[in-house]
């Protein structure tokens, strides 16, 4: 039986919405990697932790998960700062293997903490105003997904503006390229690292709130988010926000289509297959420079 064009269109649309959320998640990871050279393997697990927090808060306050970002973003920003000071800063100059061990370790701790506190069952929040569907005939738009995509795009563009149009953004880009020369310019590189890491983790707090308007919290979503965003960064090439958004949309659409047309289980694996194929043909990423 062939799927109807309406079904495919619906699936692509859902993929686009998901893709914008992915770009928000990938942005924090790519900033931390691009500026500090640290691969944060715990990035996805912060979203997982945030999702549980949103679940608790939204249920407790009987409010919409999207509003919980008012709490999760500042909280995660501060948590990011604390983790930078205590765990990341001491390993900054160390070998990559040590840095990897440290962030993998953080992720492992977070995951086991979640397993212990919440067990392995998925948890979802009853959304309030966002649980509407706009019926447009061929497709229907889930308001929660539309709003989360819109807010994600807004924040990604906001960060892009910060990076390209402000003094602190200029300092961040200079530090990413050459820390020693950046310090010669009068830039306090330690402060820039602190800011970037806190921002990266703070953004996961926002991503978690948006995710919970239509998704579920479970202890393992961190790993899937983490890997997916790495695929996105590898596809998009580091640096440009446009490449990041484009590859996020591609991954979102591919995932959504395989979910509709093949099966939800396969949909988790397909982006990696695409990733490996891209590596064969364009090792610099789809949008990266040679």
């Amino acid at each position: 039986m062939l799927p109807s064009p309406g079904l495919i269109f619906q699936s692509v649309l859902d993929g686009v919405f998901l893709g914008f959320l992915y770009s928000l998640i990938a942005l924090g990871l790519s900033l931390v990697f691009g500026v500090m050279g640290i691969i944060n393997f715990a990035h996805g697990d912060f979203i997982m932790l945030g999702s549980y927090l949103v679940w608790i808060l939204a249920n407790g306050l009987r409010s919409d998960p999207s509003f919980m970002s008012l709490a999760t973003v500042p909280l995660f920003f501060v948590i990011g700062a604390a983790i930078y000071m205590t765990i990341i800063r001491p390993v900054l100059g160390k070998e990559p293997l040590i840095q990897i061990a440290v962030t993998v370790g953080i992720g492992y701790v977070l995951q086991n903490f979640a397993l212990m506190m919440f067990r392995a069952e998925p948890r979802a929040v009853q959304t309030t105003y966002l649980n509407l569907y706009l019926n447009l005939g061929v497709v229907s738009i889930h308001l929660a997904k539309l709003i989360s995509a819109f807010l994600s795009l807004l924040i990604v563009l906001g960060v892009h503006y910060l990076l390209t149009k402000t003094w602190v953004g200029l300092a961040i880009r200079a530090t990413a390229y050459d820390r020693e020369v950046a310090s010669l310019m009068g830039i306090n590189v330690g402060k820039i690292f602190l800011l970037v890491f806190s921002l990266g983790i703070g953004l996961t707090g926002l991503a978690a709130s948006l995710w919970m308007t239509f998704g579920q919290a479970d202890p393992y979503i961190g790993s899937s988010f983490g890997l997916l965003t790495w695929v996105i960064i590898a596809l998009g090439g580091l640096g440009g926000v446009s490449g990041l958004i484009a590859s996020s949309l591609i991954v979102g659409i591919i995932q959504s289509l395989t979910m509709t047309l093949v099966s939800p289980t396969v949909s988790l694996a397909i982006p990696y297959v695409v990733f490996i194929m891209v590596l064969w043909f364009r090792p610099q990423g789809l949008f990266g420079k040679v």
């Binding site: 003094w167 200029l170 200079a174 390229y177 020369v181 310019m185 830039i187 640096g239």
Partner: peptide, 15 residues
């Protein structure tokens, strides 16, 4: 700073 513009490089001197 090779990826930045000439002007951005100059701005950084006056950070």
């Amino acid at each position: 700073f090779a990826p930045l513009t000439v002007l951005e490089n100059l701005y950084l001197g006056a950070y």
